[in-house]
Write a protein that binds this DNA or RNA. Structure first.
Lengths: 348, 348
DNA sequence: CTGTTAGCGCTTTCAG
DNA sequence: CTGAAAGCGCTAACAG
């Protein structure tokens, strides 16, 4: 199915770009008048303005952002750095960001660092290079944040905080979500609850573990280090690790999976070994994805307002860009425990 | 917090941007030499080059893309227009695109038109404005394509074709996927197979319906118009529509859901009314998402190489940007039918 | 109200 | 090998 390249309208026709000057000539006025007419501010005779607008429309004029940017204004581009767009979590986040940014008439430049800090830094450099009006950072690592903040670019961290001062953040209260989830299991009578994470270095993993501990403290149930399984970021075969862990700890009656990735591994492993859920083993996930409400039994999960988080973060950034030089702030959104069929009293 | 200019490195300070001129002064050479030194092409004495590079690194020089772009080159930005980033399908697609674009040292500008053509056009205009090197279009509608192509911007359409000539495309063979899926149901003995779509105007829906029909033709089974349910784009309550449809056609023994959105509605409705799957009703989905392999029974589905499609499309675009003025081409990727538990012989 | 003028930061001839 | 100079397209004083 190959096509021809038609003579004009289509194709390669690298016909001369229509510039302000061209329009000015067309209308018989000066470039600056044309600029003012189109920009809308500054005085222009209505009649001239109309003629300029007509010519612009007729010729298909498209303003050149680079020229405008070069002149001093920022590019109006908002950078978004995520660490894995294939993960539904980040996709939702990006969707929330995109929506708010588009509503403000800007565009999102998306970079996926695949969890690799050097990629993140390259992304940050690219944002700097294009004079992004601001940047949203969702990945781990603080080098990118440092670089951007050091150059005076407004930054908002999303979901994770790198610890860099003077930078806003929007997060979800991981500790509280975890505490509620594990508290729910404890209230049902579970006493040997495993927690599976893929990192405990960054705010998210760390706080979820903290919440797990806090819940035990609340309930006066002693903690056991052996019930903590940290798979590490990007484990080769998480399900196998979960399997080994479950084999080693047959006394476990419930599992708290600290995010959607580990939840999937845990779920598959439970299914593989035909463990009755919740009769034989209860399960709670942190992060509530489509599949969790579609499986049988539905997964009890901590729902995070992910889209909302992206949206709020973007709006905060936009405010900051507009001029807010005030104190930096951290906004925290609340997660919500959704009870479904995967949790019940132990030992039934 | 007004711009103090800190000694160096750290602060928030809107300290004067480091430009080539600044570096040239620092090194005691001319701007053009500095430019050549950093650009890497053109002759520069090795010793001078080293000094320039050192100064650039020390001062934290970041080239200004707008200036470069203005000078004539394109911005190196690649536009990506999708119609719903919250949909896992588009998220995967975007991930594939991002990966290829980043590998080529460019960045992706992401616009989500939410299925609204006017938004798509605004996005296209923005791409033009920023002199995007090329654009990938996944949404319905041809106005955006026309606009972009008309301005000489390389465009590759992904998943859908608008019918605009002189523009490459990468798609998945929907017809074949649908034909196999429905053929599978027919082979099992089903004779009253419903097909649920959300549009039949664009290439995807149209071709899936075509495949549905072709399969019937292959098997010599007569078609019945009443078995086609077209929900229309963005239905208010797809599940309710599915419910009404199933009520009206109790003789149906299998359902072919033409994409992941309608599949979810169908699945939920089947679950809600406790229809035994596959005993009472078989089901196949076009598009294979996480949840479909996690539910019980697993959904038989047509797997589309979505990430791969985005990746290929981006690579094709990049080639085109590099200079390929050759014939436009359409690459078609093959889907694959994944058999799981949701399909079986009827009337058991 | 409108035209002139001066760059923004960079690349790229074109002479030294 | 290096420097001077000319803009890319646009905006923003500043005079008319």
């Amino acid at each position: 199915m190959s096509g021809r390249t038609p003579g004009n309208g289509g194709g390669r026709g690298r016909r001369a770009r229509v510039t302000l000057r061209r329009i000015a000539e067309e209308v018989g006025t000066s470039q600056s008048t044309a600029s003012r007419a189109l920009a809308g501010h500054g005085y222009v005779a209505p009649e001239v303005k109309a003629r300029v607008e007509e010519a612009a429309a007729r010729l298909g004029y498209v303003p050149d952002i680079s020229a405008r940017t070069l002149k001093g204004h920022s590019s109006g581009l908002v950078g978004l750095l995520v660490s894995d767009l294939r993960n539904q979590f980040y996709a939702q986040l990006a969707a929330g960001v995109e929506q708010a940014v588009a509503a403000a008439g800007h565009q999102v430049v998306l970079v996926d660092d695949h969890g690799d800090e050097s990629q993140a830094v390259r992304g940050a450099r690219a944002f700097l290079s294009m004079r992004a009006a601001g940047v949203l950072l969702a990945p781990v690592g603080r080098e990118a944040t440092d670089l951007l903040v050091g150059h005076g670019t407004p930054v908002v961290e999303v979901d994770r905080r790198s610890g860099v001062r003077s930078c806003d953040a929007v997060t979800i209260d991981s500790e509280r979500g975890a505490r509620e989830a594990v508290g729910h299991l404890l209230a049902l009578g579970h006493r040997r609850i495993a927690v599976v994470l893929d990192e405990t270095m960054w705010a998210t993993g760390k706080n979820r573990l903290k919440g797990y501990r806090a819940a035990h403290r609340d309930a006066g149930v002693p903690l056991s280090r052996r019930l903590v399984l940290d798979l590490g970021l990007r484990p080769a075969d998480p399900q196998r690790d979960v399997a080994a862990f479950l084999d080693a700890h047959p006394d476990i009656t419930a599992v708290f999976a600290a995010n959607n990735v580990v939840a999937e591994a845990v779920w598959h492993e439970l299914k593989r070994r035909d463990t009755a859920v919740p009769d034989r083993c209860s399960m709670v996930s942190f992060d509530d994805l489509t599949w969790m409400r579609v499986v049988e039994p539905g997964l009890t999960a901590v729902r995070q307002p992910v889209f909302e988080m992206g949206n709020r973060a973007a709006r905060l950034l936009l405010e900051r860009i507009e001029g807010g030089q005030g104190r930096t702030e951290t906004r925290t959104l609340e997660p919500e425990l959704i009870l479904r069929g995967s949790t019940a009293a132990p030992g039934r």
